[in-house]
């Protein structure tokens, strides 16, 4: 079936099986590899993207469900790293291997859009479904606070 949706403000149309997860549409068909595969079963958060203002797992969104929706991926925040979350992540030097960080940043964006000044508990609740195996959690917490100060609701 033909699926039409928008990614980072651009209209896309793909002809795929309606059960195909958005993750593979983004990565393998549209060549947007910023959204990462980590588990494929919705337990690691590496593939988190925004659907409207809401954080969703791209591996759990089927093509049929994506029909007509608006998505934002890490590539869509800004290409020059100037989005408040990106700046905060650089400021706090969060990344180690960096592989999970796109998912972390997208989760943080969704949190800040609904809770502009989050507490540590808000941050923990919003990000507890995302895995960082390098163990950057304490910096992620700091970075979300920093992003809030930089106007992360954008």
């Amino acid at each position: 079936m033909t699926i039409r949706f928008s990614v980072n403000g651009r209209d896309e149309a793909v002809d795929v099986d309606g059960a195909m997860p958005l993750l593979w549409i983004l990565r393998d068909l549209l060549g947007m590899t910023g959204t990462k595969f980590g588990c494929g079963v919705g337990v690691c958060g590496a593939c988190t993207v925004l659907e409207g203002d809401r954080a969703v797992r791209a591996c759990q969104v089927t093509a049929a469900e994506a029909q007509g929706k608006r998505f934002t991926t890490i590539e869509g925040l800004s290409s020059d790293g100037t989005h408040p979350c990106q700046r905060a992540w650089l400021e706090e030097d969060v990344s180690q291997c960096g592989y999970c960080q796109a998912g972390m940043i997208m989760n943080a964006c969704a949190l800040l859009r609904r809770t502009p000044k989050p507490s540590d508990a808000d941050i923990d609740a919003a990000l507890r479904d995302s895995v960082c195996r390098c163990g950057t959690y304490v910096r992620i917490r700091r970075a979300v606070h920093t992003a809030a100060k930089l106007g992360g609701t954008k």
Partner: peptide, 21 residues
């Protein structure tokens, strides 16, 4: 000193093995 490659990571530009095309 901050990571030199931090910018590529936060913009989704960093290419891991899985991203090779």
């Amino acid at each position: 000193t901050r990571r030199l490659d931090g910018h590529d990571i936060v913009t989704g530009r960093a290419r891991y093995g899985i991203d090779v095309r």
